[in-house]
Design a binder for these strands. Structure first.
Lengths: 396, 396
DNA sequence: AATTTTTATTTTGCTTTCTGAATTGTCGCC
DNA sequence: GGCGACAATTCAGAAAGCAAAATAAAAATT
């Protein structure tokens, strides 16, 4: 029951009805392929003739194709499948350490990729990014659009990266620059939002069918992406998801990107875990110790590393419990490199969460690790393009 | 860009297009009355002929009527207005102290009301509630539906009140009981959600045009209602909005409904303020001291009462800052009896909020007191019915 | 082997609804 | 009194879905 937004009210045109139904049929093929026209008609309650007409349209647009089906006692159905390779997307994950650019098809299969170390200089990073994208556009056919995710604040209206704390970049008009340079449609979003979108569109089946969930992205800092009713919650100026700066206690082991020692991020992030690890083995001060090393050590049964992870997991659970109380999502997903040591930390995280949710008397929210692995953010960037193709209810 | 929900995908029928446009036109009349057909046509980009047909339909349904307009150099327009009295709604606010039942028109003007002290016994309360509702149905024409709000957890699917902490009522199938007894459509929701809906549909103009905001309802406990994209965020089992149980620190002056002393509610609620007041004047221990008295004393320049309110306001601001960081709403509204002393506490609340949002570098979120006064919750109950009339995009 | 049943898809006539252009209505101003 | 400006209505045409009948193809039955 959504209040109609008169400022951008989309009145229904004669062809709106067809476009809506077309999108519904397309999504049925995407999610339940292989599926017959008859089955789609049955599930949607659209007339069989209508489904046939829509299927014809999707076929001529090259979005789906037919294969032969087995009869179950009558005329054999012709089953429909998504033609994944018909349209391609470029995704770019601009990370604090590395930037990954990839070409993938409609179902998220990467067919080409290139990685480089992100330059501390915006212009240098942008030049390198653009040259790779331009090469991909030349060497691959059917590229429909570009999705980019960055570790910072993005204005959802303009696609400008307002602030990227790690590099202190401000007001980087990424979307308009890339659009002007390539002529393709470009979508830019925060990395946590993009990662959440990736789980929604490409994640494990348990998640794909969930319409309200929270993704917690642990990196140097801590970001959250909120999916509400199958949609990314952006908030004013795209600033939603900054739960990392939620006040959660005092005396954190690290400080957040803005210098506070009370933020959730200061208690639960790679930076926090590293600080804990360093405190535990003050003898060997290794300034270049990376979080990857910390995880490797923990997996190799280094107790200090393990404890640093567990304490971090505890605070992750504490913060997550605050979110689940207030937002009551169907699930919470943990993403970021830390997902690799999920078996080590899951018990601690879940028990903290359980302890802190008794208040409301409801069963505690299930928490999963992301299954998209190292590529969660990249898949997120790609999903920014996919979502347009499948979710839009207004013709382009 | 919302992912299509195949489980309840509503395919577009031939008349869907008309229904959508009808709702858009109806909402234009509601929000911009008096307005001419031509103006609606201009703003929606619907053909003038189409608007005329839709207006005819709305007129015969008794939802709008025409008045004469002034010419601006041509044929004078016939202006359209909402016929508020054409349809009526019953709203019931079941509170911890009192229950208010009222009949109101489509714009929220109350034409009849009755109040009684809520009985600690569910059945007694239900009987009294039902008898008033039945009397209203007999004495008023055109009653379309019933909206009820309760201070507790409500299952949004079934409308069952799962748990009402104050009375320890559990699993009260209010919606189905009232529907069976009256035959009318009944909608039940949590009081904070309903209050948020009231602000969305009937609140001050600054809020009515905002599509993402949070309402903080201060009562004995603390509830939050989240409006996202012009829609109430329910969460699993309607448990969203329980931010009151968010961990915010240690050693609260009171304990929350579930006994914890770390919840936001334990720091910022009527109960917390009363506890602070009692501590400050330990001499006079008045067991029946009410929050209303506390407010009256504060307004009468009783310093202990004032300080108790200010400290409560401080923690309100602290908790609100956590929410604004994560959800980045366009505004926050404070509701509940405490709104009456808004001038006393607004400075403290706003400065705490400002101090605690520097982290993200964004301007701090505006906070308002509810303008619906004592009736916020009642208006919320009524809005549950109104929203159906104006927001639904699927014919009943 | 012929017939019936089952299931799948296509065809055809009808209805709803929007669009666009033309028409009618009403006023102020020259 | 004629003209331009603005408002509302009328009507033919196009798009899309619905319902029911027609066509198609395989499995089950006789």
């Amino acid at each position: 029951m959504r209040r109609i937004n008169l400022k951008k009210a989309n009145v229904a045109r004669a062809d709106t009805i067809r476009y809506i139904n077309r999108q519904i049929v397309l999504n049925y093929v995407r999610e339940k392929e292989p599926i017959s026209r008859a089955e789609i008609s049955h599930e949607t309650a659209l007339q069989r003739s209508t489904v046939s007409l829509i299927v014809d349209e999707l076929k001529t647009q090259g979005l789906i194709y037919e294969i032969e089906g087995e009869s179950t006692g009558g005329r054999p159905p012709s089953l429909l499948r998504l033609r994944a390779g018909g349209f391609m997307a470029i995704g770019a994950d601009v990370g604090t350490a590395q930037t990954t650019v990839a070409v993938a098809d409609l179902v998220g299969r990467v067919v080409d990729r290139e990685v480089f170390d992100t330059y501390p200089d915006v212009t240098a990073t942008y030049r390198r990014l653009l040259s790779i994208i331009q090469r991909f556009i030349k060497t691959h056919a059917n590229i429909e659009g570009i999705g980019v995710c960055v570790p910072g604040l993005v204005d959802p209206e303009t696609g400008t990266a307002l602030f990227i704390p790690h590099f202190k970049w401000r007001n980087w008009p990424l979307t308009s620059e890339l659009h002007q340079a390539t002529g393709l449609s470009v979508t830019t979003d925060n990395d946590a939002n993009a990662a959440a979108l990736a789980e929604l569109w490409l994640g494990r089946p348990e998640i794909r069918d969930v319409r309200d969930f929270i993704l917690v992205l642990v990196e140097e800092g801590l970001g959250t992406g909120i999916i509400f009713d199958g949609q990314v919650y952006q908030g004013v100026a795209g600033a939603a998801g900054e739960f990392g700066h939620m006040t959660i206690g005092k005396g954190a082991p690290a400080s957040c990107a803005a210098g506070s020692e009370q933020c959730w991020e200061a208690f639960a992030s790679e930076r926090a875990a590293l600080a804990r690890y360093r405190m535990r083995r003050s003898g060997t001060s290794d300034p270049d110790l990376s979080f990857r090393r910390l995880m490797d050590n923990a997996l190799a049964k280094d107790n200090a590393a393990k404890e640093a992870l567990l304490e971090t997991a505890h605070y992750l659970g504490l913060g997550i419990s605050n979110l689940t109380k207030g937002l009551s999502p169907e699930a919470v997903i943990l993403a970021g490199d830390i997902a690799r040591v999920w078996p080590l930390i899951s018990d601690e995280l879940r028990s903290t969460l359980a302890e802190n949710t008794i208040c409301s008397g409801l069963p505690s929210t299930p928490v999963f690790a992301s299954t998209l692995g190292d590529d969660t953010r990249l898949m997120g960037a790609l999903s920014l393009v996919l979502a347009r193709k499948f979710a839009s209810v207004v013709p382009a």
